[in-house]
Amino acid sequence: MLRLLMYLVPLALTIYAFIDCLNTPEDEAKHLPKIAWVFIILLFWIVGPIAWLAAGRLRTPPGGGRTPSEWHRNHRMEYVAPDDNPEFLNSLKADNKKDEALLKDWEADLRRREEELKRREQGEGSEDK
């Protein structure tokens, strides 16, 4: 059982540090670029994760005397999903209007070409008689 723990604890620490590193924004990684931290965590199995947790990330305490869990619950980045972002929705509306205008132009061009083709066919039909 102790041998199993000797492998599971460092593995769990490595997995935790790896995921934490991947979820950390690039500007919050200290001392080295984030990709370097990923390699350190994965290559130096026990030392790498401990180094990441100790010195690799800019860890700022939440303001206002709140606990970290309260800060994470109440702090929302900007938007969670694209359908919650008004700028994204407005860009979709603008793209939709452009596409509708283009489609109307194509339909008008198609009608014009069809009428022109009908006129040609009628003109050729009257010449044959």
Rank of each mutant, 00 (worst) to 15 (best):
M1S: 03
L4W: 01
A108Y: 01
L32H: 10
T24I: 12
D95I: 08
W37D: 01
D99M: 14
R120S: 09
D27E: 12
L117F: 05
A36G: 06
R57M: 05
G64P: 03
V80E: 11
D109C: 07
K30M: 15
M77F: 12
G64V: 08
S69I: 06
L110M: 07
A54L: 15
L58E: 08
P86T: 14
E116F: 11
L8Q: 08
A81N: 14
L42E: 06
E70Y: 02
L42N: 00
A54I: 05
I46W: 03
R112N: 04
H31L: 10
M1G: 03
E28Q: 15
G65T: 08
W71S: 15
I35Y: 14
H72E: 06
R57P: 04
R57A: 06
A94S: 08
E26W: 09
M77N: 08
A81M: 11
G64H: 08
E116A: 14
F44P: 14
I19Q: 02
W106P: 00
P49E: 14
D83P: 03
W45F: 15
I46E: 04
L8G: 06
L22I: 12
R59F: 13
D128E: 13
E114W: 06
I40R: 09
L8I: 07
P68K: 09
D20R: 13
N23P: 04
Q122L: 12
H72Q: 13
G56L: 02
I40L: 15
D128M: 12
M77S: 10
I50C: 09
L32K: 15
L2I: 10
P82C: 09
V80H: 07
A108R: 06
G48P: 09
S126A: 06
A108K: 11
D20C: 07
V38D: 01
D105P: 04
L8A: 13
D95N: 07
A29P: 11
R119Y: 00
W71M: 03
A101E: 14
E124Q: 05
S91G: 06
A12N: 03
M1H: 09
A29R: 06
M1D: 00
R111W: 05
P33I: 09
A17L: 09
A108H: 02
I41R: 11
L42R: 07
P33A: 11
Q122F: 08
Y7R: 02
I15P: 01
A81T: 12
L102A: 04
N23E: 03
G63V: 09
P49I: 13
E121Q: 14
L42M: 11
E124G: 01
E78P: 02
L2E: 09
N74Y: 08
R73M: 07
W106D: 05
Y7T: 07
A94I: 08
A101W: 10
D95S: 05
I19N: 00
R120K: 15
A36H: 06
G65A: 12
E28S: 11
A108V: 03
N85S: 12
G56A: 10
I41Y: 10
E26N: 13
L89Q: 14
I35Q: 05
V47E: 04
K129G: 10
E87N: 15
L4N: 13
E70I: 00
E127G: 00
E115N: 01
L103T: 13
I46P: 03
D84F: 03
M77W: 07
Y79F: 15
H75D: 01
S69Q: 09
E127Y: 02
S69Y: 07
E100Y: 10
S69T: 02
E116G: 06
I15S: 01
A51F: 05
